[in-house]
Design a protein around this nucleic acid. Structure first.
Lengths: 122, 122
DNA sequence: AGCTTATTTAAGCAATTGCTTAAATAATTT
DNA sequence: AAATTATTTAAGCAATTGCTTAAATAAGCT
């Protein structure tokens, strides 16, 4: 409680302390969550996840045609999604197929649900 | 279908077209969603929303003490949250109290639920 | 009116992001 | 083996982000 900015008389010190503890307990969960959300909050990556949900698997050049983007641009997005376990890669000949992993399906489900069933509610 | 990158013989043109249409229909919803998620994917802002969920209302300097950040830093985050209707501001004397708006409670609920009840699942 | 308190706004800056182009890998076909 | 195809990696760069500090607003107190 060293550096206090709130010095007004109505300031509720107990409230501030309680909030600090609440955040302190949630610190790790918040970091883990924002780490994942920062991936999903990119529209190209959300689109990739969205089509992978219905298509089972797609290769890099499929996605490049679908999104109308260069292959390296798509590849770099896929690497981020793979690094954080959103997708997995399977090599078949010289083609690499990407598909959704189950790891974060629970996190993604509400987003897909919003997009499909109540887009006006966003 | 002008610039095709996928020229391998197994390429499924129908699949690519279907995905393009799927994305085309979802375009607006995806933009609106990522616009909001990019706000929530910042850990400072998620913490602000998280404590506001339980505390009803807090002023800028409360939050500055809670988060151990400078007042302008907090103020700038609050402005973004306010611009996108996540929070509302009520002036009371020279103090400005911020509280959660109902607009995006549905979007936020799954996040708070994860943080509180199954942090290990993130 | 002048001083303090609460907050916002603005300028500056380092770090991050997401693209582009070019080069490097690797598997396939000729 | 050489050429083609699929993908990744790396360097470069413009745009964005989130902080810092300082200045501007605005409301209360003496």
């Amino acid at each position: 409680m060293k550096d206090m900015n709130c010095i007004r008389k109505e300031a509720d010190l107990d409230q501030i302390k309680r909030c600090q503890e609440q955040i302190s307990e949630a610190e790790e969960a918040v970091s883990a969550l924002t780490d994942k959300l920062s991936l999903v909050s990119n529209s190209v990556r959300l689109k990739i996840l969205y089509v992978l949900q219905t298509e089972e698997r797609l290769c890099v050049c499929d996605l490049s045609d679908i999104l109308n983007m260069t292959i390296p641009a798509v590849s770099q997005h896929l690497r981020k999604l793979k690094d954080r376990d959103f997708v997995k890669a399977e090599k078949e000949g010289q083609t690499i197929f990407y598909s959704l992993r189950n790891d974060h399906r629970e996190l993604l489900a509400p987003f897909f649900n919003l997009i499909i069933h109540q887009p006006e509610a966003i």
